[in-house]
């Protein structure tokens, strides 16, 4: 058994030995005529209590579902900014705060910057080992919901979504925009802009301050090798790349795509949240609902 497999088997073993013990509370403020909103509390490894926002369409399910894994921001969206709220009339949506993010920041309140490099030179203490477990726990919770059609569920997010899809075989669709673990050490050297690639900018600072840690950091990051994880993914996958020439553009992601076991494509950003967003909404609707169904889009995109 290879060392990367052993690393993640230990994570899943820890998770299997840690009951989720979910609590689900109605959120009247976010409940509409077409969807009911809930706050969800579940336990991940540690043990650590997490929080997520769950929305279920009114009517008879099961429904297609969208799972938004933890983002690299301090804030947890109820629904990603700019997504039409009417999306909730068609899909179950679930957004999870990984440990350190708002609503899951006790006892650990992550700093941004600071979260990505927290214990990065200690592979088994690295915070993203636990954050990945958090995201996997969220997937397990959602896929166990009776209102969810597992055959029509997509996991959406950054690199963590991809790793979750490699660890949870029930996932049939994946939409991933890697920005954390793609050739991180090499690409971090190109990044000073905290606005565009905050995690890589943070890593760049860390390696400049602690150059002697570079081998240890490399070892830790090797467990997050996306090309390795891609070999375990049979889900139909859309990879969202940065625009041509950007730090994580399509050329940086070809090795990941070529390793995927299932059908896949790369969409290169058009540097337009409208064009990129519209493509994503169409992909989700085409695959989770039907090719003949119009996507639900914001007013200004119609």
């Amino acid at each position: 058994m290879d060392r990367i497999r052993q690393y993640w088997d230990a994570v899943t073993d820890d998770l299997n030995n840690c009951p989720a013990n979910p609590e689900i509370e109605l959120i009247p403020l976010r409940t509409t005529g077409y969807a009911t909103a809930f706050g969800v509390y579940i336990t991940s490894i540690g043990p650590y209590r997490l929080f997520g926002y769950l929305s279920i369409p009114k009517g008879t399910g099961p429904f297609p579902a969208i799972y938004y894994t933890a983002t690299y921001t301090s804030v947890l969206d109820f629904l990603p900014q700019g997504t039409s709220n009417f999306t909730r009339s068609r899909f179950v949506t679930f957004s999870l705060a990984g440990r350190g993010q708002r609503n899951a920041d006790k006892p650990y309140a992550a700093m941004f910057p600071g979260h990505f490099t927290n214990k990065i030179s200690e592979p088994y203490e690295y915070v993203f080992r636990s954050v990945t477990a958090d995201c996997l726990r969220g997937a397990q919770f959602l896929l166990d919901c009776p209102e969810v059609s597992n055959e029509n569920t997509v996991v959406v997010g950054n690199d963590l979504a991809l790793i979750v899809a490699s660890l949870e075989t029930r996932i049939k669709y994946l939409m991933t925009a890697p920005k954390l673990f793609v050739d991180s050490i090499q690409l971090a050297g190109k990044v000073i802009d905290y606005a565009g690639y905050p995690a890589l900018a943070e890593l760049n600072d860390y390696l400049r301050m602690y150059p002697d840690d570079s081998d240890k950091v490399a070892e830790t990051l090797s467990y997050f090798d996306l090309a390795y994880h891609a070999t375990n993914i049979s889900a139909k996958t859309l990879i969202l790349a940065g625009s041509k020439g950007s730090v994580v553009d399509a050329s940086a992601l070809f090795p990941v795509q070529s390793s995927l076991a299932g059908a896949s494509q790369i969409f290169e950003s058009q540097d337009s949240s409208y064009k990129d967003g519209l493509y994503c909404e169409q992909w989700i609707t085409e695959n989770l609902v039907s090719p003949d169904t119009d996507p639900i889009v914001p007013v200004h995109w119609s």
């Binding site: 109820f78 997504t83 709220n85």
Partner: peptide, 17 residues
């Protein structure tokens, strides 16, 4: 009235309640 997205949707949520 012109959007159906967050964050302005927070106010729509509030006024619905």
């Amino acid at each position: 009235l012109l959007t159906d997205t967050y964050p302005y949707e927070e106010i729509n949520d509030y006024l619905r309640l």
